[in-house]
Amino acid sequence: MKKEELKRHIIVILALNQVGALARIISVFGRRGFNIETITASPSNYPGLTRITIIITATDSAMDQVLAQVEKVELVKKVFTPGENTLYRELLLLKINAKGEDRERAMSVINVYRGRVVDLTSESMVIEVTGSPQKIGGFIDIMNEFDVVEICRTGATGIEVPGRTFDII
């Protein structure tokens, strides 16, 4: 067996929105030894179905195996890996301590990234940025020059362009 390289994979799952459904799906990843990097879950346009987006790092063959295992879960109605033509977005909230000149410098970066300041005190500011995971990553890198107090990001969600239609019973 040749050594396969690790890659980032995005998995989209549509599952019945029931008590314990998320726990059961996540358990498949844990059971097979995968660490989940990000996960988002929210109601979908199909009544009663939750859309879950998961990012993991794995080899291609390990990825095939985990997809097959997830597909097997009774509550899961659809599993797919989005194609190349997919838009990904995530939301970042970032808090820094900044006064005076620092604050002006920060504002210029925030403007370039089309972020918004959503809370401002004399000491600190909370910034909101949405965009692709790469953009969010780039923004955080630059903001690390400041006194970053707290970071939270939602993890990616994505949609294919043009959209895929599902054959869901």
Partner: peptide, 14 residues
């Protein structure tokens, strides 16, 4: 018990 048995059942119902 529906949590405890997640990895060893095809499905659990609470």
């Amino acid at each position: 018990i529906t949590g405890i048995t997640i990895p060893i059942t095809k499905q659990t119902y609470y």
